[in-house]
Structures are given as structure tokens and as C-alpha cells.
Design a protein around this nucleic acid. Structure first.
Lengths: 157, 157
DNA sequence: CTCACTATTGATATCAAGTATCAATTAAGA
DNA sequence: TCTTAATTGATACTTGATATCAATAGTGAG
């Protein structure tokens, strides 16, 4: 079964910054290039470690610009540093693997229908919503099957 | 229109701690009593300020025990300190007023149905989900109506 | 191309939330 | 009451993130 996807948009983070009137600089390009190469969600500290020649302040500032531009999603992580992922599709929700932390995006019309039906029941005006689905992703499932068939039970949650 | 509610369970935080084999102490009672009196969501720092005679470490520890016991929900706030609210109903989602921060709980069977239909499409096993609805609550709506008709705009966000 | 001006950078200091430490205290069962 | 282990809280520390500000580097005008 394929992962749930929907209308991926072209990702060009440095352009997203220029569209907001920000200059194209070496430091910003280094940050956006790196983010585009990371397939998973990442933390700010992680980026700082991978870009030792870019100052911490610049990494944090660039991330903030990208979130403001809507090019990055800040994921509502409960513990530890917040994580970010590229917003590849317009309005979407996230799947988060509770074992490896891999983040996926999905869009589902039923979620939007739920919102409309809730509108009648909620005591106030709905201005937005957010949904995360916690999963064990297929590669983690595969790993644990290998481990359990070999008698090795080293899966940590 | 009434707020959405569902089967409120009796809340007794100190008992929730005792059920987990933790002692009933003056400091813990002070913390749980305070939490039970707070109607809204709160932060750890807020509790510390309101309980100057209880050590910070104890406040943080007690909150963690309550979350572990399932008696408190840790809300996934994107910016600033995480907030906590009493888990009054079994499995539920949250409404968060984006103006005043008031947190409500709701349960909706359609959300559960969405999960079941997504199960077929997601690339992995679903192990949990979370949903937050951002609203402007009825009292904030009322305030802004009063202000716009009287010209007084003292609403603070 | 050069100049002038402003945005940007990044080392550093600082802030804020939260945790670890550990000696003193206290709850609770024998 | 006594004993023992749990609990407390002052303090130091860790971590994530922001503020400051002098030095640097884009960019548009001339």
C-alpha cells in the first residue's frame, strides 16, 4: 500500500525567502539547501550541528523566516525541542512514527467534513485545526518483524 | 448553543497519585488542590508562582506524575511553555481559544470514524492520534461585539 | 565601477524552562 | 514510638532559544 500523498508542490526554500523580500545570502542558502536534503523532520539544534560554519542565531532566524513564509511546518512535539518539516502540500496533517520519528503528510477530505459538522456543536467560531496521527511506520514494522523472527527483541519505544 | 461535553469523570488528582503508590504529602496536596481550582489550562511556571511555598522541583515532579497517571493532559502548544489541563473525559480532543487560551474538551464519534477510514490509507500501523481545534470562544466573541458597538477596544490578546 | 546605505551575520551574553543533586525532612507501616 | 524509605526544596546545571551589537556584505543609484 502506498503512503498517503496529495498534490506535492515544488519546494524552493530560498525562493520562499526572496519572495518575502529577504536577501539571498550564503548563510541562508546553506541552511535552505541543507533542509531540502533532509528527508525527515529536524530540530534547530540538529541543523546547527550539521552547519558548523553558520552561526546559531542565523540558523534559528532562517527557520523562523521559513515558518513565517509557510514553507516550513513547526510540529507540535510534546517533549524536547520542536521539530520542523517542509510543507510540501497546501493544507495537511501529519503522521509521526512513534518509534523513529519519521514525519509524513496527508490530506483527507473526511477531516474537513468533520470540521464542518463540529462547527454546529462547538461553543464559538472555529478558526483552525490541527491533527496528528501517531503510527508505527512500515519500515519500523519491518524491522521489528525481522527482530522478532530472529529472537532478538531490541525494539525500544 | 451549549458547549460540547461528554461524560465528565470525577476528578480527584491526589487520589490519582495515591493510586500509583505515591504518598499523600502537604506539598502534593497543595499542587493538586490548586490545579483543581484552576478552570483553564495552566503552565508549570504559573503554578510555581501561585504556590510560592512549594519548591519548583516539586511542582514539576507532581505535574509529571499526574501526566503519567493520565490525570492531566499535556497540550501541544507551539510556542512558549507547554500547558496542562485536567483530563475530565476519557478519550477526547481539545478546543483552544486563540484569543484567551481557554481550553475545552470534546469527543466526537466522527473523529474516530475518520481514524478507521485512514487506517486503510496510511503506510503503517496507527497507534494514536491527536486533534486540536482552534476557536474564538463565545465569551471572546461577546467581548469583541461589545467593544465594536461601544467603541471601547480593550480586548487583550 | 564605486559609493553609500541597509540588511545580514555571528560571537557573546542573556533568558527561560526544566532537570539533577543531595542533605534535611517527613509519611507511614512495624 | 521507631525505623526506613520516600519526599522535599535550595542550588547548580543543562538545554533551547533570543537579544545585542560591531563587523561584514548585498544592492541600487549614480
Amino acid at each position: 500500500m502506498p503512503p498517503v500523498t496529495a498534490d506535492p508542490v515544488e519546494v524552493n526554500l530560498i525562493n520562499a525567502l526572496e519572495d518575502r523580500g529577504l536577501r539571498r545570502t550564503a548563510a541562508r542558502s546553506a541552511v535552505t539547501d541543507r533542509i531540502e536534503r533532509v528527508s525527515d523532520a529536524f530540530t534547530a539544534e540538529q541543523l546547527c550541528r550539521e552547519l558548523p560554519d553558520v552561526g546559531r542565531a542565523t540558523v534559528y532566524r532562517t527557520i523562523r523566516h521559513l515558518v513565517d513564509a509557510g514553507a516550513l511546518c513547526k510540529l507540535p512535539i510534546l517533549d524536547g525541542a520542536p521539530m520542523y518539516s517542509i510543507a510540501r502540500i497546501e493544507h495537511h496533517h501529519h503522521t509521526i512514527c512513534s518509534r523513529c520519528g519519521a514525519v509524513g503528510e496527508f490530506r483527507h477530505s473526511t477531516v474537513e467534513r468533520v470540521m464542518r459538522s463540529l462547527e454546529k456543536e462547538i461553543d464559538g467560531d472555529i478558526v483552525g485545526h490541527r491533527m496528528e496521527i501517531f503510527i508505527t511506520c512500515s519500515s519500523c514494522l519491518a524491522k521489528s518483524e525481522i527482530n522478532s523472527s530472529s529472537g532478538n527483541s531490541s525494539v525500544s519505544i
